[in-house]
Design a protein around this nucleic acid. Structure first.
Lengths: 234, 234
DNA sequence: AGGGCTTTGTGAACGCGTGCACATGCGTGG
DNA sequence: CCACGCATGTGCACGCGTTCACAAAGCCCT
């Protein structure tokens, strides 16, 4: 067996699904369910059952053949693997609309995270209260990060300020960044960055909408002869 | 050649990168750049240059060998492919913190979308102004969708109301849903759904943070003898 | 006008993730 | 106490996406 800290690496695709299982198991647990099968989890997560089993097998053999998984125990193991046995303080850069929304987000503190600080460049906003946390000036970022031992930063600035915000976070000692600004950011090697961009998401939807529209138009015109040549529809 | 509307299918992975190229090309265009190479795009998007070329080749052969791509023309083609030659009206369900932030989001209307309506269950919020749009009651959703020919809906409700919001959107005739609520939603076949969950993103970061912390701890203890047996570090 | 330089477009190999199918092993009932 | 049934855990094959490497092709300079 490998030592517990040198745990076998978990595929990124699996890491991205574990939080989904976690949420869903939490709900089931609250609903009083104590045991659950991979089939049921798959149903709730809208994925393949074999995938669920393989994902969970990366954590260890925590199921019982012929029975299923103990919900509470599984919750514990997933939390453990995701590093959620502790609460992570998070600092938010940008106290505008988005920053305020994120700070006040329900599924924030309820899931292993807490707002360790909010900073903004606008000295007008400094001192105001956002979701129970007082806004600090961005100059105090490094102090804030050091004092609260923060390693996760959230960028909620306008796009133009995103890279500067990210640089400031890195300089302050943060090692993971979640970027909500509509502008890609770059960070030194060793820093984990995740981008969430509203307009990117909408544009992906737009693409699929257009495809659908084109398909509809094609269907309407299908009766027109002469287009011939067409092969089988796969 | 295939007919223009029956365009060869573009891989989903590519569709998810096109908006990134679009944003970055827009910035370059504004900065006065007229020509750009796949290498430069790759640099800016932090991806492999070959990937950029293959992605762009799905749109057609719009580059010039030995020279690169015409920024403006490429912008046009990407917009065309993503369905951004038109403005898409979007309806937002939920006028809370998050809904307000999304409605007021800068990179929203500037990128081919406009807020066609905001609805909420809370009759107290109905009639108030959010980002220049008046909040309607959720009962008026279907009328709103029909009147403005809306096909994209955004869910910005609490988690507990997410599925109901999605159901209402589907019933109203929307065919693409972007879900920001911290709860997975299901929709009938044929409806495109994308999930964006803050806590999922944070939990992924948490996982990587913990790995880093474990790695650091292992490095600190490395001098301790007796663990022997270990082989090569891959 | 032609050769060389540069960058695209793409064939082919590789690697990862997915899904099937089944052996393994645990609980249960007779 | 043993046999049966059921869900897990996983070897294997398949398919998609990524990356390399190079041939095709346009432009510039001599």
């Amino acid at each position: 067996m490998t030592s517990r800290s040198g745990r076998r690496r978990i595929p990124e695709a699996t890491v991205e699904r574990l939080p989904v299982y976690l949420r869903l198991l939490d709900e089931q647990f609250d609903a009083g369910v104590t045991r659950i099968s991979s089939e049921e989890i798959a149903e709730l997560a809208a994925v393949n059952a074999a995938k669920v089993r393989k994902d969970l097998s990366y954590l260890g053999s925590y199921g019982t053949r012929g029975v299923g998984y103990e919900v509470e125990f599984l919750l514990y193991q997933i939390k453990r693997e995701l590093g959620l046995m502790q609460e992570w303080p998070v600092v938010i850069v940008g106290a505008g609309n988005l920053g305020q929304a994120l700070a006040g987000y329900g599924g924030f503190m309820q899931r292993g995270f807490l707002v360790g600080g909010i900073v903004d460049v606008d000295s007008e906003k400094v001192g105001t209260d956002v979701g129970g946390v007082t806004v600090s000036h961005v100059d105090e970022l490094a102090g804030l990060v050091a004092a609260n031992d923060i390693s996760i930063g959230v960028v909620a600035t306008p796009g133009s300020a995103a890279q500067a915000a990210a640089d400031a976070l890195v300089a302050a000692g943060v090692s993971s960044i979640l970027n909500f600004a509509p502008h890609g950011i770059t960070a030194p090697h060793g820093i984990t960055v995740r981008e969430v961009d509203l307009s990117v998401e909408l544009q992906i939807l737009s693409y699929h909408e257009q495809r659908r529209a084109n398909a509809r138009r094609a269907a309407t015109l299908r009766a027109v002869p002469g287009a011939g040549r067409g092969g089988q529809v796969s």
